[in-house]
Each structure stands twice: as structure tokens, then as C-alpha cells.
Design a protein around this nucleic acid. Sequence first.
RNA 1: CGGGAUGUAGCGCAGUCUGGUAGCGCACCUGCUUCGGGAGCAGGGGGUCGCACGUUCAAAUCGUGUCAUCCCGACCA
Length: 576
Amino acid sequence: MRYSSFFIPTLKETPSDAEVVSHQLMMRAGMIRKIAAGIYTYMPLGLRSIRKFEQIVREEMNRAGAIELLMPGVQPAELWIESRRWAQYGKELLRFKDRKENEFCLGPTHEEVITDLARREVKSYRQMPINFYQIQTKFRDEIRPRFGLMRGREFIMKDAYSFDVDSSAADLSYDKMYQAYNRIFERCGLNFRAVEADTGSIGGSASHEFMVLASSGEDAIVSCNACRYAANVEKAEGVRQQQAAAGQQPLTKVATPGQKTIAEVAEFLNRPQATLIKTLICSDGAGQFAMALVQGDHELNELKLKNCLGWDEIRMATDEEILRFTGSPPGFLGPIGLKGDLAVVADYAVSGMTDVVVGANETDQHYTGVNIGRDFTVTRTADIRLVGAGDPCPRCQGGTLEVWRGIEVGHVFKLGTKYSKAMNASYLDKDGKEQVIFMGCYGIGIGRTVAAAIEQNHDENGVIWPLPLAPFHCSVVVINAQKDEAALALGQQLHDQLEAAGVEALLDDRDERPGFKFKDHDLIGIPLRIVVGGKNLADGKVEFKLRSGGAMELVTPDEAVARVTAAVRAACGGVR
RNA sequence: CGGGAUGUAGCGCAGUCUGGUAGCGCACCUGCUUCGGGAGCAGGGGGUCGCACGUUCAAAUCGUGUCAUCCCGACCA
């Protein structure tokens, strides 16, 4: 491809509405342009990277036995009413009517459509296992789209749906997808982790998220430094503590004027934060309340508490609500002397504490020498805290957890029978008995993965593409291309040789100064670069350089072609 | 939806407080020079100042409303 006949509108300045690096660089490199909040045009260069990733996903899905189809973007309301999600989904589901006043939505996901298909077409155990996938544009009317392709409203997603005869067969389908996902992100050259995750609103029994590690990631994840355990912090398990020894100290009320936070109280009483209990009150927003107790230096994991209580929603109680249950303003809360019926949930770590400090439910007062059982009782003990760096691993002896930031690029779910039951997707087994189909669903954010690759691979000059995702493998920059006919001819020859070898080359034949061209190629992040022209031309040499760094080398044109071809073969597993 | 901010040329911004000729840099067009890390000089084109209503002799500037965009929180590939 000649640069002059392609279209790469680069920007020297960073658009002011781009917050994260990938968004900034995709705008500057001319890969995307915004048309509305969270809605983008994929420009020619951006589309090439998107297509590269899609192709890798296709190959690995096909290898894993999944079958590609393409479902509609516009979906009839009746399917969503049937699955009950028409009412549940909320404003994120963009709804509208056709000319006949029938209701439709723009598909944010395709469980309904695929389940409808499966119940019509998959009627026998002989047809399973089967797994359908598509790569398709979805629309979710996000409250707050941001970060460019990272969290758009319209976005490209690969989604796959598996159908099996029973739970253990569904587990096998899940494992296949899990393996396929690992291969996909490995092939892209990305640094990632597969972590245990909460299933959220999709539902189901188990799930893993695939996280690309990046400091700008929206999710925190933990991984064990000794074993393979890794999980989203939302899900990461705290370790059950041994029951505490009996307390020694008497219950004593002490004045703590103006000392509201754990840090203030610990400082004031001159004792470690770990010897205090943090008391929090939460609500499900529908009239239910609960008190949560965590060790002073720990943090509550609201999601765990919500799941533990079986609530649909969770939020912190308001000051008025707190006053109602404790008679005290926030800052002096404790589990002793509550007014009214309030479930008290203690974290595992709390059950191992003795002679602790809690608020006295009275302004400027705390208790010391507090002991569970003797001074107050808890409704239940559970894992409700946010785990952190240095915590013990819940799966192995001696391992400790490390914390990373990650970008969720893939998510696999065991759905069980949630959708098949609701929508009557059944089959006949060997004995002619009707059975419910077991499902799994598996998503990959296509645009988000490409953006995540940039988050993980860039420097101050621009993108540094991993070869498998690069829009072009190699730049051929011709110096003084419009005047130096010999240089342009050699550049063209190199370009043609590379293309013949299956390498995608971008021949920069523009009438621009060399520095200007170099800046452009650095910005758009082409991994390999050959420079033709200048005084090296007379010596029969060209320059070869990696975008990722390292020294420039002077080589013969043939050697340059060989080096580039070898690099592409090594990174992309053979040139197609 | 709550809190904060911003809308002025394709992009980045100044001007708004204190009402009176709409400006700067980049990009774009023409010419000359230049040519290995986003060149220099000269000339040029391009703006209903987000939109509406109001105040005023006069509004980018003041007021009200509205829309859009961005940032911080709850959702998710």
C-alpha cells in the first residue's frame, strides 16, 4: 500500500476530550473519529487492526469447534418480554417502534435471539454439543460512555453461545472456550490474566474474565504469587480465620471527642487500626438494612455483602437511616445496643479479633475491650471484605496475593438453564424424554481489545503495535521520494517483495520531510521500519529498525526483506 | 440519574470578569527557499461565537431556558 493512496489523517495535537492514552492515540493516529458520544467511525487504519483481531478470534473459535453465524442487530420486544429482560434491562436497552407500532430494541447481547434459534432448531441430543458465534455490532445505551473504544455505546463484540445436554457436558464446552480465549490473547502478544469473576446480571453459576494488564484498567484483580489462583477483587475470596481466644479486657466506654474515622480513633487511642472494627450500614434500597463489620484496616466488598444477603441492589445507608438504627451519627457506630432489627454480618477476619474497639452508638464515644459473643452477637459470619495486596491466597498454603489493574476484554459464563428454562429450549434425550438445554455464553470486546493493546503497548511517540494486531507489519519510508527516483524505485521494489512474501507493507512515498514521516510512522506504531534513500542508497544499504526500540541497522535490501519476513513469521505464526 | 466543568475556524486555545472592529497557534490553499525526527518567509481562504428567548442603542461577553460534550460515582465486552 502506498501511503499517498491510503488515508491516515494524523493529528499533531491531542483532542481535549480524550482522557486515556489509547483514546488519544487512536484519535491522533487517525484510527477512529467520533460521531456522537460513545459512537465512532472506524477509519481505514483502525479498521485494519480491528480486522486483524477479528481474524485471530475467528480462527481460534473455528479451531475450538464453534460455528459462525450472524444475528440481527434489531430485535423484537417479544423475545425480551419472554426472557423477562424487557422489564429488567432498564434504559441501557435502546427501544423503539416500527411504523406498525411494534416494539423493537437494538441488541445489547443475543441470548434471546440465539435461544429462540436453538429451541426451534436443536431438538435432539444428537445435535449437541453445539456452539454458535458471531462477530457483530452491539448497542448499549451506557449511562456514561468514555475512553473511546474502551467503553463505547456502539461496539463490536464476538459472542458465542454453547448448547449442551447436561451440566457436565456444558463444563466441557466452557473449558474449550476458556482454552480458546487463552490462545486468542496469547496470539495477540498481550499480557493478560484469566480471573475468577462475579456473574453479574448475566447470571449463571461460574465465570472467568480475561483481563489485559494495564495501569489504566478499570478493574482491580488479584493473583497468587505461588499458585494459579487469580480473581477479580469483586470476587476474590478472603481466608477464614481461626476463632479468637476469649477476651481478657473488660468492656469500657471511652470518650473519643471528634474522632470519627478509623485512622483518627486508632491514633487517638494509640493502637493499630487492625484492632478496631469498622461498622457500616447498608441498604438494598427497598427497605432492607444490614450492618457489616470488618477489621479496621480492611474494606467492605459491597458486592460480596449483596450476594451474601441475596439482595438485588446495595448502597450505603444515609445519615438519617443510620441514626434510626443506632441513635448515633456516622463515626461512632458499633454493634452494641442497636435500635430495631438489623442483621449483623461480620467478616471472617472479625471473628478472629479479641479486645477490640468499636463505636458506642453515641456521639464522641467508643468502647474498648469489646469481644464477640460476650458483648454482642452477630447474625452470621461471612467473607465480605475486599482482599488486597499481601493477603494470603485462598487456594494454596503460603502464597500471597498481588494486585494488578486490568481491562476486561473477555468474559466466559456458565449460564446453566437460566435462559433455556425461561424460553422453553428443550430437547429429547436418548430415552425420548424432554430435557432442558444447558447453555454457556462467551464474549470478547473486539474494539476494546484493540484499545487495550494500545494501553499496554505505547510510548511518548505513539503506538507500538504487537505484530499480530498491527495495521501494517512494516513501513518502507522513502527519503525525498518525489525527487529521488532511484530511492522510490528501490522502495517500491522492497514493498513488492514484502507483499509477495505475505508481509503487509506501507510504502511512504509522500512529498514530506523525513522527520515528518518518521513522526507519523512512530505515531501509528508500525512495528518494523525500513528507510530507503539518502547517502546509504549509494552504498547499496537501507536502514532496518524496530518500533519497539533497539539500534538502527544498515543492511542490504535483500537482508532487510529477510529480516522483516522472519520477524512477521515469528510473531504471527506463519504468513498467510 | 446525582455532583463538577466546558461549548469561539478542521484541531488546540485566548477573548467573557469590566458589553462596542472575532483573535492566536497548528492544519488547509498559492509561491519561493528548505529537505534525516512534526521547516522558514510571504500571501490567502475559512467562524449563524452550541441553540432559543430576553435585557440593551449595541451581546461571544449580562440573564433565563435548552441541547451537546467531557470529568467524578452506580453498569459492563
